[in-house]
Amino acid sequence: MIDVLYFAWVRERIGLPKERVKTGAATVSGLVDELRAREARYEAAFADTSALRVALDQELADFDAPLEGVREVAFFPPMTGG
């Protein structure tokens, strides 16, 4: 089980900020495929992953990064700080 977090419009489209997910995916992309297959709201959020960023255990990562040993995955749009 891993914690999956959503921020900004990703959170709004999916309709929740955080959930526990049971996954057999080896990589972030594999997890995205599993989530997209769930429901239309996930499909809407993950339709274009080039518009998304991912962090693994609070460090920015790539979509092909492995999930082994990861406890927290976060999906969000490009950041707009400053």
Binding site: A8, P78, M79, G81
Partner: peptide, 14 residues
């Protein structure tokens, strides 16, 4: 610092 805070610190403005 400003350049990196803009796009590498996890903030989102609405």
């Amino acid at each position: 610092l400003m350049d990196y805070l803009k796009s590498r610190a996890p903030f989102w403005k609405r």
